Computed example of a mutant assay.
Amino acid sequence: MVVIRLARGGAKKRPFYNIVATDSRSRRDGRFIERIGFYNPIASGQESPFRIAQDRLEYWTGVGAQVSPAVSRLLSTKTSS
């Protein structure tokens, strides 16, 4: 099953997350099928804290991919603001 979830990157104490479409059996930061966005929880100034390719998200959910709870929470905060 394909899952859309966060993959952690960045340095220690400075997290950066890629939003990826991956096989549910893969490790959190392991192999993925496609990177569809990012989330930067410590963005400041002009930096964008969250970006996702909406067309790719619609494609993956259309073919049956499940969205993780963390990503669905990010999507709901994006649509409400």
Rank of each mutant, 00 (worst) to 15 (best):
V67G: 08
R8W: 00
E34H: 06
E47V: 15
N18M: 06
A7S: 14
S44Q: 14
F32E: 01
P69C: 06
P49V: 05
L6T: 00
S24Q: 12
Q54T: 15
L74F: 06
D29I: 00
R28L: 13
V71Y: 07
K78T: 00
G10Y: 05
R31K: 08
M1Y: 04
R8H: 01
P69I: 06
G10K: 02
T79F: 01
V63L: 11
T61H: 03
G10A: 04
E47I: 08
S80P: 01
A7L: 00
G64E: 09
R14F: 11
V67A: 10
P15I: 05
V63M: 09
Q46C: 05
S44H: 07
F38A: 14
G45M: 01
I19S: 13
K13I: 00
S44L: 06
R73N: 09
F38N: 13
Q54G: 09
R14K: 14
K78F: 07
E58R: 04
N40G: 00
D55H: 12
G9Y: 15
R35A: 13
R35W: 09
F50M: 03
G9I: 00
N40V: 03
L75K: 10
S80R: 08
W60H: 07
P41L: 06
T77M: 08
T79S: 14
Q46I: 03
D29S: 02
W60I: 06
R31N: 07
D55F: 08
V63W: 03
Q54D: 13
M1W: 05
V71K: 11
A70S: 09
L75A: 02
V71Q: 08
N18Q: 10
R35T: 09
T22D: 05
S72M: 15
F32M: 13
V71A: 10
A65W: 14
I52R: 13
V3P: 04
G45H: 08
V20T: 03
M1L: 06
L6N: 01
A21Y: 01
P15A: 12
T79E: 10
A21D: 12
S76F: 05
A70Y: 08
F16N: 05
